[in-house]
Computed example of a mutant assay.
Amino acid sequence: MSNPKDCRHETLAHNGVAHVQRCLDCGSISIHLGPISVRLDDSSLEALWAVLGEATAELHARKTTEVLNVMRRGVA
Rank of each mutant, 00 (worst) to 15 (best):
A13T: 11
G74W: 01
I31R: 00
C23K: 01
T65N: 08
R73K: 14
V75L: 12
T64V: 12
I36M: 12
S28Y: 04
R8F: 10
A50F: 08
R73P: 00
M71T: 09
D6E: 15
G74M: 04
R39H: 11
A61W: 13
A57S: 14
L12W: 09
T56A: 10
R73S: 09
S2L: 15
V70Y: 07
G53W: 02
I29T: 00
A50E: 14
A47I: 07
A18C: 09
H9V: 01
N69S: 15
C7G: 04
L40Q: 03
I36W: 06
V17R: 12
T11Q: 12
V20T: 11
T56D: 07
A76S: 13
C26I: 03
A13P: 01
C26G: 02
S30R: 05
I29F: 01
N69K: 10
T56R: 11
A18R: 07
S30V: 03
E46F: 11
V17G: 02
G34H: 02
N69A: 15
I29D: 00
D42K: 05
D6A: 11
S28T: 13
H19N: 13
G74A: 08
A18S: 09
I31Y: 03
W49E: 15
V17K: 13
R39E: 06
A18P: 00
V70T: 11
A55K: 08
A50D: 13
T11M: 11
L68V: 07
D42R: 08
H14P: 00
S43F: 07
E10Q: 12
T65D: 12
V67G: 03
C23I: 06
S44Q: 15
P4M: 05
M1E: 04
V38P: 00
M71G: 00
H60P: 00
N3M: 09
H9I: 03
M71R: 14
R73Y: 06
E46C: 06
R22Q: 14
G53R: 08
V51P: 00
A50W: 08
E58W: 05
L59V: 07
R22F: 02
L24P: 01
D25P: 00
G34D: 04
L33P: 01
A50G: 01
N3Y: 07
N3P: 01
N69W: 07
G16L: 07
S28E: 11
H14F: 15
E66K: 12
G53E: 07
K5A: 10
D42Y: 07
N69T: 14
R73H: 10
E46T: 06
A57C: 05
C26Q: 00
N15Q: 13
C26A: 07
S43M: 12
H9K: 05
A61K: 14
K5E: 10
G53V: 02
D25F: 06
R73E: 08
R39I: 02
C26V: 04
G34Q: 03
A57P: 01
H19W: 09
M1K: 06
S43R: 14
S30P: 01
S43D: 15
V75G: 04
G74Y: 02
D42N: 09
R72A: 15
Q21T: 06
R8L: 13
S2W: 06
I31P: 00
T11N: 12
E46K: 08
L68A: 11
I31F: 02
V20Q: 03
S43K: 14
S37N: 13
A50T: 15
D6C: 04
E66P: 00
K63W: 05
